[in-house]
Design a protein around this nucleic acid. Structure first.
Lengths: 337, 337
DNA sequence: CCTCTAGATTTGAACGATCAAACTTCCTTG
DNA sequence: CAAGGAAGTTTGATCGTTCAAATCTAGAGG
């Protein structure tokens, strides 16, 4: 900075001001300094700045081990969107891994205390998550992708979150099928209680109650919950069929389940998955897509949000984004047609 | 540090020494200082250290946009392995994105000049990659996951790389099928020239020449190259069949191609894919797995390698790891069996 | 002509660590 | 017993930036 200042005939601080608060520098001076900066190819030293400002402008995110499996691409795409948009805001993304929530807390502490990272993004939130509790307690800024799923989840001001409205997503999927004339639409989801899973089921249920004309008792028989996975999805539907339930089509809580269902029922029964993973695209499975760009955008908005201590800043601390439905035509299970 | 020193009755520098070069401190003093460190919960400030040492201990890696698609999980799993092992070496991983190689160079420069990152890992290397050339020229340390595929690729000392031996991988796959009694094994790959694709085809070819008993002209007819993708794979095999080629089984350059092939030929023709993606697991497709832990390990070894300027340090600058074959039983394309 | 004020710029200090050199101790050796 | 070394520890300077306060400049007002 001193060198730049020397050439431009100003002091270090003025160079600093040109970069950090251009409005306090006279336009004439500002331009001159800017020209010298590009001429000399000067770049500020990030660590020195961080040392002085005590801010790292870096966001930490755990690279999820659960990322394996078909739905892994969701985390992956989210990470991509986040990195891209963080860049536009002069933020950096730093990764870490952890074996369990307790270990994750340890890692977060390490990164935070070393001033490597000053805010965290948490994914895969669960009921009564120990991580969020600890972070709130420590006063470390964070945002979760996923609702807390506790009591008062929508309004807790200490916990900022962004989530995708799975209920709306399954509503979309279900209404799409209803619109195509299907009536007996089954829901293939996860065992209750599951915050995310129950939310998605609710979307199906509401749409069905609204327009299927089926009795509640009948709807109860049209749903099944199994662990996530292709084989499990297959068995879930098999169980329904074996139980004598008649099924026109199926909406699912994930693409894994969707693929399992689809492998069992063949090409003539419409199936809609969730997450719009590459697999869904590959096999021509319709799916509910999470708008991860919007999620990333929301996460960064909430992290950047300065009104820290204000009471009751309710709605601005949470964001629920609506998914969209991707309709495809099936192309699986027709060997040598 | 001053505070810790005060309590322990030593100077700042001794505290620093306890952390950075414990061997120069008298054991007695060292223990005392250590105790005070944990007692006060002192953590060194990473940015201050980086400012002084002019080293960030951070590795940059581009989050590939190509990561979408079925094979995206390879990049994802690699990233995970890298992050995990970097942690063990006190290194951090920082992400960035870029729209094209030129943009990537710009991003790398930015991160490097700001001293945010001091070494880079490059993936998806291509023939005559502009990035590696520029990095070598600038003297910025880097390692690629993937060979340069240029002339002299195995021995260029300026370019450190780790790669998976695709030839060996397809050799494994092909020999597995030959061992099961298959003879007319087709190769479904990518159009030549393609460094990676040609390498994999060579693995198939060598195994076939060795043990299939088929004439070279016959082998020529058993191979086909198409752009990567499920639909493309399907069409590739369809073209072979339409051309009157008789096929017992198929080995592929990717799981996408494998899935395409499998969707066409049905359950009775063995197919082996490449990358062992979640999809392969889901549909029960055998596949060649890249040992990404080993790759990550190699990459970090090469980054850490201090003998920078030594001439002819040949073999230690490159690492070629052997993949392994995952054999599965198919479970696709049997609607309501 | 002097004072006042607002705006623009500069100066001194600090952020928290490490490097390099200087200083102590204590032991060996002629 | 003085000189020489080795081991352990401390001191001064520095990395590149930003904050806070001081200084400078020019125009307005009395």
């Amino acid at each position: 900075m001193l060198d730049v200042g020397r050439v431009a005939g100003v002091s270090r601080q003025t160079v600093s001001n040109v970069l950090n608060s251009p409005d306090v520098v006279r336009p004439e001076t500002r331009d001159r300094v800017q020209r010298v900066i590009t001429e000399l190819g000067y770049r500020p030293h990030a660590s020195a700045r961080r040392l002085r400002t005590r801010r790292s402008s870096t966001i930490g995110i755990r690279l999820d081990p659960m990322t394996n499996g078909i739905s892994g691409s969701v985390h992956d795409r989210f990470l991509h969107a986040l990195t891209e948009q963080a860049d536009a805001r002069e933020l950096r993304i730093m990764l870490f891994t952890a074996t369990d929530p307790h270990d994750e807390i340890r890692q977060i502490r390490r990164l935070h205390e070393g001033s490597d990272v000053d805010a965290f993004v948490l994914t895969s939130t669960m009921f009564g998550d120990p991580r969020t509790e600890w972070l709130v307690e420590q006063g470390i800024p964070f945002v979760t992708f996923g609702r807390p799923w506790g009591i008062d989840d929508l309004n807790d001001p200490a916990h900022r979150w962004v989530d995708v409205d799975g209920r709306a997503g399954l509503g979309l999927a279900t209404r799409q099928l209803l619109g195509e004339g299907e009536r007996r639409i089954a829901f293939l989801g996860w065992p209750s209680p599951s915050g995310t899973g129950d939310d998605r089921r609710r979307g199906w249920r509401e749409a069905m109650e609204e327009a299927s004309g089926l009795a509640p008792a009948e709807l109860d028989r049209l749903q099944v919950g199994v662990t996530d996975g292709v084989a499990e999805g297959r068995e879930g539907i098999r169980a329904l069929l074996d139980g004598g339930v008649e099924i026109d089509s199926i909406v699912c809580a994930s693409d894994s389940l969707g693929l399992g269902a689809l492998l069992l029922v063949g090409p003539d029964v419409p199936v809609i998955g969730y997450d719009n993973t590459p697999v869904a695209e590959a096999v021509g499975l319709s799916s509910v897509e999470q708008p991860l760009d919007e999620v990333a955008h929301g996460v960064l908005d909430l992290i950047a949000d300065p009104n820290e201590g204000e009471p009751g800043g309710g709605p601005s601390r949470h964001r629920l984004v609506r998914p969209r439905l991707v309709v495809r035509h099936r192309r699986i299970a027709r060997p040598r047609d």
